[in-house]
Design a protein around this nucleic acid. Sequence first.
DNA 1: CGACATAATGAACAATGTTCATTTTTTGAA
DNA 2: TTCAAAAAATGAACATTGTTCATTATGTCG
Lengths: 201, 201
Amino acid sequence: MSPKQPRAAKRASFESDIIAVASEEFGRRGFEGFSLRKVAQKMGCAVGTLYLYFDSKEDLLHAVVEASFRALLESLRALPPANSAREMFRNAFRAYVEFGLKHPHHYRCAFAQPSPTPSAKYQPHAAFDLMREKVKAGVRAGVFQSNDAEVITQIIWASMHGLTSLLIARPEFPWEPRNVLIDSLSDALLTGLFRAKPQSH
Amino acid sequence: MSPKQPRAAKRASFESDIIAVASEEFGRRGFEGFSLRKVAQKMGCAVGTLYLYFDSKEDLLHAVVEASFRALLESLRALPPANSAREMFRNAFRAYVEFGLKHPHHYRCAFAQPSPTPSAKYQPHAAFDLMREKVKAGVRAGVFQSNDAEVITQIIWASMHGLTSLLIARPEFPWEPRNVLIDSLSDALLTGLFRAKPQSH
DNA sequence: CGACATAATGAACAATGTTCATTTTTTGAA
DNA sequence: TTCAAAAAATGAACATTGTTCATTATGTCG
């Protein structure tokens, strides 16, 4: 009899099961407590088996984080349309930070270590690309003071990441309310980047 | 005969030697490659000896990072006086980022993991406190649009940290020139935070 | 000198990621 | 169905890690 699930499909299914279990485990224990043996145990398989699907622990974590950031990309894409470019960036800013706070371990891991092995390290670059397109549209529409879309994009990214990263890294710090920080930072930054309010000439 | 170096001094000297060696090693190998056995070897002592001076690897790393951030604090304090509040923040912003880029492993480690054990995790808080004082002075002078010094301080910190952290975490990314990013970000942010240029009434 | 306190040692332990010879399972043609 | 070849899964073994602790060495003072 021929298998109902073709080999490749079965393999892919098992692989994504591993990613799901690993993601679960990673979200719960964090980087330190994350162990391949525990993953194997929860999967009901042997440690060695994991190596038939992933080259290394790092490789598996890469897959875990990548899956998370695909979700971020979709969150950003699913954002309701905004009334103005400025409002759109505000919303995206907030969505980005809130995503990070919802998956702190995953977020942190994505920007963890620059080990030179896996060539293009965990990339939230897809989300970055999306934002760059939005910025480019803004530049074409003349809403920014500067015309350098790349600089603007990188700056916004740095700010979003900075707030997210700090809130995650230092939960014990006496932060002002998150909503206040998110809005204040995005407002200040966008005020600095956008042209002054359109004045009818 | 009584010892030329009193016991406590000898102990303190050995302790700071360990920190120096560990800092060296940590800066070279990074977090992953950092091993107590290598530190002991470079110190010419046994592994167990390290435990007479530090409770754990994490404790030692804490001391290493703390020493680094004392240097940051001094850098910020040693900044030449500026002609305006705005320029002062610009300079501090740049100094902060450049410090992080000069000690990438130390900087990253300071914001690494929120393990709940050592109560008040590696704190660059002293540097934060310094900045808060500067912001408070600015608020008193009425240079900011808002009066909430705490929010302003946290926002600036987040931006500085974000740029620093990203540049460290993704060295392979096609960044715009660092100087451009630093100046653009601090300019945009400060423009958003400061009152519009003083207009003679 | 000798006895006590302090410091230093490094073998031993548990846990980790990774490898690989061995065993089990699946597959497709006879 | 049978059976050999291929693919997949196993888990013991290895090297390396942080950490502990009984043992040894060193320094100090009566």
